[in-house]
């Protein structure tokens, strides 16, 4: 039977939360898996306090070495799992590679241009 790395949806209505699991492909989504590799919270978190020009972030907890092991023994990631695992270099990126990278560069420059030039007054107040 095929072993897959996939997401199992937990959480509440409008508050999704996923376990990243290793499970047999034919088992039910939320049934007990072979192993829970980590979690994925798809709700973007606000920038941390003290991080003035920070971006929102999504929280992922993952046992990276264990994920590598399961990929090494032939576990097949689902599309979403592939996307997450590709981010940390366990797998080759498969989805919209060039497009996403271009978008990242554009979004970065746009965000940088949005930050107002610090005037003398704001600098003074930040220092004070």
């Amino acid at each position: 039977m095929v072993v897959r790395i996939r997401l199992a949806r937990f959480g509440k209505k409008h508050a999704p939360f996923y376990n990243i699991v290793v499970a047999h492909a034919r088992t039910a989504r939320n049934s007990r898996p072979l192993e829970v590799l980590g979690t994925y919270n798809p709700l973007p978190q606000p920038p941390r306090p003290g991080d003035t020009h920070g971006r929102p972030w999504k929280d992922i907890k993952l046992d990276i070495s264990r994920a590598r092991y399961w990929i090494g023994v032939g576990a097949q990631p689902s599309d979403t799992a592939w996307r997450l695992l590709a981010m940390i270099g366990i797998l080759q990126p498969k989805f919209r590679v060039g497009q996403v990278q271009n978008q990242v560069i554009r979004a970065d420059t746009a965000a940088k241009s949005l930050i107002p030039e610090p005037t003398a007054e704001t600098l003074e107040s930040v220092k004070a």
């Binding site: 590799l37 972030w57 999504k58 992922i60 993952l62 046992d63 264990r66 978008q103 990242v104 979004a107």
Partner: peptide
């Protein structure tokens, strides 16, 4: 593109 993905290494 829109947010950072922050990975934390944990142990199973």
């Amino acid at each position: 593109r829109r947010w950072d993905f922050v990975f934390k290494d944990v142990s199973v």
